[in-house]
Design a binder for these strands. Sequence first.
DNA 1: AGGAGTTTGTGAACGTGGGAACAAACCGAG
DNA 2: CTCGGTTTGTTCCCACGTTCACAAACTCCT
Lengths: 258, 258
Amino acid sequence: MTSRGKRFGAPHDGASRPTADKSERGIPEATVARLPVYLRALVTLSDRGIATCSSEELATAAGVNSAKLRKDLSYLGSYGTRGVGYDVEYLRYQIAREIGVTQDWPVVIVGIGNLGHALANYSGFSSRGFRIAALLDADPGRQGEVVGDLPILAFDRIEELVAEHGVAIGVIATPAPAAQAVCDRLVAAGITSILNFAPTVLAVPEGVDVRKVDLSIELQILAYHEQRKAGLLDRIDPGLPDTTPAMPGKTTTAKAVG
Amino acid sequence: MTSRGKRFGAPHDGASRPTADKSERGIPEATVARLPVYLRALVTLSDRGIATCSSEELATAAGVNSAKLRKDLSYLGSYGTRGVGYDVEYLRYQIAREIGVTQDWPVVIVGIGNLGHALANYSGFSSRGFRIAALLDADPGRQGEVVGDLPILAFDRIEELVAEHGVAIGVIATPAPAAQAVCDRLVAAGITSILNFAPTVLAVPEGVDVRKVDLSIELQILAYHEQRKAGLLDRIDPGLPDTTPAMPGKTTTAKAVG
DNA sequence: AGGAGTTTGTGAACGTGGGAACAAACCGAG
DNA sequence: CTCGGTTTGTTCCCACGTTCACAAACTCCT
Ligand SMILES: NC(=O)c1ccc[n+]([C@@H]2O[C@H](COP(=O)([O-])OP(=O)(O)OC[C@H]3O[C@@H](n4cnc5c(N)ncnc54)[C@H](O)[C@@H]3O)[C@@H](O)[C@H]2O)c1
Ligand SMILES: NC(=O)c1ccc[n+]([C@@H]2O[C@H](COP(=O)([O-])OP(=O)(O)OC[C@H]3O[C@@H](n4cnc5c(N)ncnc54)[C@H](O)[C@@H]3O)[C@@H](O)[C@H]2O)c1
């Protein structure tokens, strides 16, 4: 999913580094993707005043298997107490620290159109470890407009902003044709993590992380399964030969139709 | 990622069904998630007037390994020509058919706030196999407003709309606390595929697919890797004991600090 | 026709992820 | 202190996903 350079090196380097303690070495990607879910569940429990929880309870809240939860947490360290469970506040802090959201990360958003406006107005950003540092757009007509306390600035100022605020994370919400150019400029300015909303594959150099959020892909995946569910009931005859493009050069032993 | 009931049954049922032709039986989930990417790449090639492409070219355009691409396509059937490559139009149609986007899917969007407005205005929906059938919101103050050609309707009308238009896919863009209730109502109305933008784990009955799009999880994953990149250079000393909550009952052989 | 060059489709090896099951560790009662 | 009950951390095993590598199949040139 993440088109990242293979930075974590050999996973099978077996006992090469005796001094490596557990929390320093390679947490599996699948686990990393679930830690935020656990963190959110813990926050919810904490807000309800619950001080302790078992792996079973937390797993249910996070929508996963309890065995998986325990294994995931074991990559961070031994933060539970056998026979008791996990201290909610303590575990919450440990996960937040591991993810890196104990302090705020500044984020720039590029492309303040439909989607960019929604993102800029979104309060869920700042509530968990992220702070919008700047809103950028190439369209002079949009520049100066204030969205959610911040003015829209010219995209040209990206280098200055990255240098000044130490921004490492950029969000791309421009139209697809502009995304690669914007991405290149962000990388050149020093951005090393990109969240891409534009429906394009972005090429980035080694060391830069890209994650994509792609609405139409998600819908298409749902459509595939939906079609499958329907097909299991209806059994539509496969092959509507009218609208089907012919297989081009497929001269299977030269047996044409005529 | 998808909290779906195990519908594809035993994957290791080895040769149980001799009559099952290739395109009918279980395409791997990882492959399904990539098919839309291939489809988009093919559309781009097609728009450029390119009639034929090799697996290498298509793989590059899609940002994947060519071996992976070929294996993925092999689950659909043998649609290429050895020594030549793939016919762009033909492959495009085959993938679209497999995903199920040769005809349009009606979609309802629930919660027309910041994000819902952006979605309703988004043209990328209709351009690829989806059509917004209705916009719903529980707030009477919003009802009647027209967004992107469609009026916002009362959420109560969901059953009627599902029955009338045969809607199978719902998008949830309400605040998190309302999401589960909305989800339950959608499922009761007959919706069997849900795309959830609210930061909550949704519980659904067997046979209903849920996919989530979670901005803050994506950012946290980026933050984790970002922290790691920084840590490999800086080597910040691990353990800021001041802000660290104490491990609660951890009386490791009763050796207290004092 | 035959051979050189290309490119697909797939078998096999390898790595990653998920889940059951269990020993180790902890608590509280007596 | 010991014992029974509880819950974690970990091990083992299997399924899934990725990549390599190569035979099969096709085109084009001679
Ligand atoms: N709107 C949605 O709900 C939605 C959903 C999914 C995906 N997307 C994707 O998100 C992206 C943005 O969608 P949108 O609806 O907000 O589009 P939009 O046209 O409303 O906004 C795009 C903004 O990007 C700016 N822009 C264009 N080129 C730029 C450049 N080179 N540098 C900086 N800014 C530039 C434009 O001035 C504009 O303000 C698109 O790629 C779209 O496909 C949107
Ligand atoms: N805005 C963003 O950029 C963004 C980004 C990521 C995630 N999200 C998530 O998407 C969701 C929507 O975000 P938003 O910013 O649009 O919020 P919003 O408050 O602007 O809009 C929510 C809308 O849902 C409606 N609603 C509330 N309860 C409802 C119910 N029971 N039934 C039907 N409609 C109901 C409200 O009337 C409102 O119009 C939230 O869960 C948010 O966390 C938003």
